[in-house]
Design a binder for these strands. Structure first.
Lengths: 158, 158
DNA sequence: TTCTAGTACATTGTACGCAATTAATTAGCT
DNA sequence: AGCTAATTAATTGCGTACAATGTACTAGAA
């Protein structure tokens, strides 16, 4: 007699909680950033650049965890909107250096102030906020080191 | 003299932690579900249907938090792969009833068994897993009730 | 019954996300 | 120098997400 397989309920899944929370945060930031005509991935790209500019596409990607397939068109849009500049490296023509435009440098305090105001709506004190983030990062670290390809799959696993 | 705006660092943001964790889980499930040729959104759609089938597109969407713009093409692909069936309701022609195919009903134990095996890789005991999920759901609930449009934006907020 | 809202799904348009491939360039080896 | 391997972006193709719009249909009011 086969051991009964443990049931999987949608609302009990950690993955679904993260999936839902991530989408809601995305929507939240979409509204918070609307005055600046920025999307959420564009915002985190700016966050990375405000900490360190210029960077190559590769370096930038390692900070925001996106590859060139996502970043190249995203950066082209940001260039069109005047947020960043893209320049081929003169020493190594394979690389493209991404730097902040003056507009992005100037807008930083305004964007920070507005985003911080919006964050106040969450009503989370700093301790709760940090604890939540650390918990999520812990789970992200665990999942990062798990590779389902190592689990052998046979057509009759139960 | 203006109050200095609080600095925003990418790696300290809860949104970025959730964004990253969600993407990693997505990747994890992509690999875990590869033997079945299912994507993650398709998997949660099946989870919802395994709990309750048939459902209209609207009902299904309220469970997985997706609208018809996403679900319609997704369900068409799942229909092509033989996972679900789509039928216009005879009493109300506006509605489309989504039901599990025999293939989906038959595959459930195998998919549950394999996904559960993959989840073991996380090495999270049930208590930690549940606590993490509840923490994430708490944050998701907070963000859900926050509307940045209520925060007035003036060009010089600082 | 005819008009009018409202509802449900489909479509369109824009923007990711990422695997896989390609193209250009550089670096390493002999 | 000449050949090969590795590196970096860009491109392509597919699948989400979701706002906004369109269309078909239903139901309720006059």
């Amino acid at each position: 007699m086969a051991t009964p397989t443990k049931n999987i309920l949608l609302d009990e899944q950690l993955c679904f909680a993260l999936y839902t929370a991530s989408k809601r945060f995305n929507h939240f930031y979409a509204e918070a950033l609307a005055p600046f005509k920025l999307t959420y991935p564009q915002y985190i790209t700016l966050l990375a650049l405000w900490e360190n500019s210029p960077m190559t596409v590769r370096e930038l990607g390692s900070h925001v965890n996106l590859d060139s397939g996502t970043l190249t068109p995203l950066l082209k849009r940001m260039q069109t909107q005047g947020w960043v500049e893209r320049k081929r490296d003169e020493n190594d023509e394979r690389q493209v250096n991404i730097s902040l435009s003056q507009k992005a440098i100037d807008a930083k305090p305004e964007i920070f102030a507005h985003v911080n105001s919006c964050m106040d709506l969450l009503g989370m004190d700093e301790k709760t906020y940090n604890a939540t983030r650390d918990t999520v990062n812990f789970a992200a670290e665990r999942i990062k080191n798990a590779d389902p390809k190592t689990v052998k799959f046979t057509s009759n696993e139960l």
